[in-house]
């Protein structure tokens, strides 16, 4: 066990993947000499060379398109998108080509591309730099979409994403890059929990609170606060947004009878809507209350002085918890 910050854990995960497989390449803007704007790739170019840790032009469509071509011919590129909002120039390549080439080749080519996206707000950096675009990708067949919420998952899920033969959109909660946590680097990759599985991060009996990525920390804090009021909240870190681990959710909701889903993305058409629909169908006779949702407002992400109002905080989560329990 070692204590690592999320950025360092992601770095260590990529290092281990690159040592294990010479076909793993890193591509992105300023990721080599600088080590990335968040320093997630710090030192990797020095150790693996300019051919494997590549400083690309500022051209997201070009970066992802080139990665697709490399993957078509046997490489495992990992693309860093500098900020969440910068993925949109590459959106076409991701949804039109990356997600679909396997089917178009009748399964004869694999697209093992990872697109790493620092996501979410909380760093005072306005729109383009604080967004939560996961629903766009989760909506697209052919893509896996995952979000890590702690250094251990950062370390392991990134290696699993790189080893995966499906394209993976990998979300990293950027405001938590320097939050530390324990990472056990001893096991082999096949021995750890698969990235497709959700995880109960706090057990409880009165209500299930589901979230992912940067909001897991807030959800745990909400559960602690609720406990002081005598309420037992079960917190689930979804980890994989597509595929959804529906079984883990239904198991929990059938025990608690109540579900709140929280994320930073605006709630309209968001992942929480999909979860609410599925759980309502699967757990209809177990539910004591409608599934409630907490999220960002349906408005562009605001500048720094306003972002605390935008981000779902402890109070907004607890308000939803109260409303669900009051039914």
């Amino acid at each position: 066990m070692t204590q690592l910050a999320l950025a360092r854990a992601l770095n260590a995960g990529m290092r281990r993947a690159m040592e294990a497989d010479p076909k793993v390449l890193l591509m992105g803007e300023d990721i080599g000499r600088l080590g990335g704007v968040f320093r997630v790739t710090d030192g990797l170019q020095k150790d693996f060379g300019e051919d494997r840790v590549i400083d690309t032009p500022l051209a997201e469509s070009g970066i992802v398109g080139t990665a697709i071509g490399l993957a078509l011919r046997g490489y495992r590129p990992v693309c860093e998108i500098q900020f969440d909002g910068f993925v949109f120039p590459a959106f076409d390549q991701i949804v039109s080509q990356l997600a679909k080439m396997r089917l178009r080749s009748l399964g004869k080519v694999a697209l093992p591309v990872v697109v790493r996206i620092p996501c979410g707000g909380g760093i005072g950096a306005v729109e383009h730099h604080s967004e939560s675009p996961e629903s766009y990708f989760a909506h697209t067949p052919g893509l896996r979409v995952v979000a890590c919420a702690n250094p251990s998952d950062g370390y392991w899920m990134l290696q699993q994403a790189i080893a995966c033969d499906d394209p993976v959109i990998f979300f990293e909660p950027k405001r938590q890059y320097w939050d530390k946590g324990e990472v056990d680097t001893a096991p082999g990759l096949s021995e750890v929990e698969p990235m497709s599985a959700a995880r109960v991060v706090r057990e409880g009996t009165d209500l299930t609170l589901v979230t992912y990525g940067p909001m897991v920390k807030n959800a745990l804090a909400a559960a602690v606060a609720a406990e002081e009021d005598g309420r037992s909240i079960e917190v689930i870190d979804l980890r994989s947004l597509s595929p959804l681990d529906t079984e883990a959710l239904t198991d929990s909701v059938r025990r608690t009878g109540r579900l709140v889903v929280a994320h930073e993305a605006p709630v309209f058409g968001a992942l929480s809507a999909e979860i609410a629909a599925r759980i309502t169908e699967a757990c209809f006779y177990h539910l004591e209350a409608p599934v409630l949702r907490v999220g960002g407002f349906s408005a562009p992400y605001p500048p720094s002085r306003l972002e605390d109002h935008f981000l779902p905080d402890l109070d907004r989560i607890l308000d939803a918890v109260d409303r669900a329990l009051a039914y």
Binding site: G65, A67, G69, L70, A71, L72, R73, Y75, D92
Partner: peptide, 17 residues
């Protein structure tokens, strides 16, 4: 490829391999 221009970057990637 039916998205105009998209595949030029894919060809560059294959060439890189």
């Amino acid at each position: 490829y039916a998205i105009v221009g998209a595949h030029l970057t894919l060809a560059a990637g294959a060439a890189w391999s």
